Amino acid sequence: MKVMQIMGGSGEGGLEKHVVELSNEMSKHCDVVVVAHEKYKDRFVDDVEFVPLDLSKSRRSLSLLYKLLKIVQSHKPDIVHAQANKAGLMVASIRRFLPCKTAVTIHNLKKNLNFTKYFDLSIGVSKGVSQQLTGDNRITTIYNGINKPDVTGNQLHLPDFSDSELPLILAVGRLVPAKGFDVLLEAWLGVEANLLIAGEGPDRAELETLIERSDHLQKHVKLLGNRSDISKLIERAELVVISSRREGFSYVFSETLLSRTPVISTDVPIPNEILPSEYICPVECSDSLQKMINQTLSCRDQLQERFQPIFDYADGHLQIDNMVQSSLSEYRTVLGLGS
């Protein structure tokens, strides 16, 4: 089987991580061609055939669509797999000229996903995303898989808190409205624990202002900025909190469970598909979030035992091998090759 993965844009985030890890691991099982911006070339293993094409320009560019079409036609894949909306829209535009089956993976909740009906296979990275996919084609959910976190290396350095005996809680993500860190800080006004927020972004000044206005937050909250040791931070924390207003797929959630660290979340995919209801609270409600945090911390000595079945589920469903094998199985179904 020959699979072509197509990635639009030139960003740095979960999408790029997904395509690189999926393609590298999939190349152990079939022929893989990746079409993407040249900047990503060195991230793929030698067994992946990389074709540079800058897809960060307008998806309506006729010259760009023609170049993409010629690349697909010249490589003759069995299936073309568009990753995310932009690549999906571009492949949908040239679908009638393609001599192969097509697949698309949608990574985030969007208002209009009608174009997915033109694909033979549509994949959502969570059940919440999959519910938005349309058409009579094959629709399925495949969770993004990751490798087990590596916590080897240098010693972990943490900021000092005035009361270091309190539980250490972690939140991770870009400092943007979607992650709900302002809601988390409001909730923290009634939480007796130390909070680390790892990540950087345009909301930093606003969050710093919120912290400066409260003696309690100044004592118990630290903004860490970007960190290269997230895995170690997750392992060190007693609890990870996801306060997002919206998510397509949370890599932090997967990494936390694979690190066997308890996690609670607002009502977003994929936490709301895996966690018991007592560890999920409404989006953008600081009172509910505060209550859930305090209730969870009140039984902190029992958390590891209570989360054991959830950790086991993550081991079986959120690792990269499961993602690859599930994807290959779906390809074979669409191609009529059986399982």
Rank of each mutant, 00 (worst) to 15 (best):
Pro276Arg: 06
Ser126Pro: 10
Ile234Leu: 07
Gln73Met: 12
Met90Val: 05
Met7Asp: 15
Ile211Val: 07
Asp136Leu: 15
Gln319Ala: 05
Thr141Gln: 00
Asp321Lys: 08
Leu196Arg: 04
Val72Cys: 05
Glu21Lys: 09
Glu200Val: 08
Glu16Ala: 07
Ala237Asp: 00
Val35Ile: 06
Asn226Gln: 10
Lys39Ser: 05
Leu109Glu: 03
Pro262His: 01
Lys2Leu: 13
Ala237Gly: 00
Ala198Asn: 01
Glu165Gly: 15
Lys28Val: 14
Pro52Thr: 06
Gln73Glu: 14
Ile230Glu: 00
Gln319Phe: 08
Val221Arg: 08
Phe307Leu: 10
Ser254Lys: 06
Gly9Leu: 05
Asp182Thr: 06
Lys232Cys: 01
Leu189Met: 12
Gln155Cys: 10
Ala171Glu: 09
Leu328Arg: 05
Phe253Gly: 00
Ile310Ala: 02
Lys39Glu: 11
Leu113Cys: 15
Ser56Cys: 11
Cys281Ser: 12
Arg96Thr: 07
Cys285Leu: 12
Glu165Thr: 15
Glu192Ala: 12
Leu195Gly: 04
Ile234Met: 03
Val20Arg: 13
Leu62Trp: 10
Val80Lys: 06
Ala36Asp: 03
Phe50Pro: 10
Gly201Cys: 03
Gly338Ala: 04
Leu239Met: 08
Leu55Lys: 03
Phe161Glu: 06
Met1Cys: 10
Glu247Ala: 03
Ala84Gly: 13
Glu278Asn: 12
Lys111Glu: 14
Phe181Tyr: 05
Ile264Met: 14
Val268Ser: 03
Asn85Arg: 11
Leu121Thr: 01
Pro52Phe: 03
Ser58Ile: 15
Ala314Gly: 12
Thr266Arg: 00
Val34Glu: 01
Ala92Cys: 02
